[in-house]
């Protein structure tokens, strides 16, 4: 197997397994570490994990596909998370989402063709006081109006961020 998956250095599966060895129920924690590293859980890594842990691949996939947090596809360069918690929904979160969908011709859960943005909907970012909220790569933007989106996103499009 290559030393690289999608341009990232490979995660040391054996080391990981060793670290969590003997701790029951470790699969989810190991998957978290893998996803932290790659941004998603690549199939070849799951295969390898299945061998090292001696767990059927189906069982690993069963867990990955159950939880929203785990991804099977590589993420975009930037992730746009639009909050659809109740407060954000009431204050116009859906409008933001529609606007972004239109701007980049992308649906939620998808990555733009150029791989620049991954658009996702999140339940609650825990800052309802700032509703509607969106987050780009961990940076929170509060009280966003649809006509402000262009200004917010253009530095990312231009590659300034």
């Amino acid at each position: 197997m290559d030393t690289q998956v999608n341009g990232n250095t490979k995660v040391d599966i054996k080391g990981l397994a060793e670290k969590w060895k003997g701790k029951r129920g470790n699969l989810i924690m190991i998957l978290h570490e893998i996803q932290n590293h790659y941004g998603y859980v690549p199939r070849e890594v799951s295969l390898q994990l299945s061998e090292v842990l001696d767990v059927p691949l189906a069982r690993i996939y069963e867990v990955i596909t159950f939880y929203n947090f785990f991804k099977l596809e590589p993420p975009g360069k930037h992730t746009i998370s639009v909050c659809m918690g109740t407060a954000c929904y009431l204050k116009g979160g859906a409008k933001l989402l529609d606007e972004i969908k239109n701007m980049f011709a992308v649906e939620e859960g998808q990555t733009t063709k150029d791989g620049l943005f991954h658009l996702q909907v999140v339940r609650c970012l825990g800052c309802c006081g700032l509703a509607p909220v969106m987050m780009i790569d961990g940076k929170i933007f509060g009280k966003v109006k649809p006509d402000e989106l262009m200004n917010i996103l253009s530095p990312y499009v231009k590659g300034e961020v």
Partner: peptide, 9 residues
């Protein structure tokens, strides 16, 4: 110990 959730209500 800490265990992480993974986004399931």
């Amino acid at each position: 110990e800490i265990r992480l959730g993974a986004g399931a209500f």
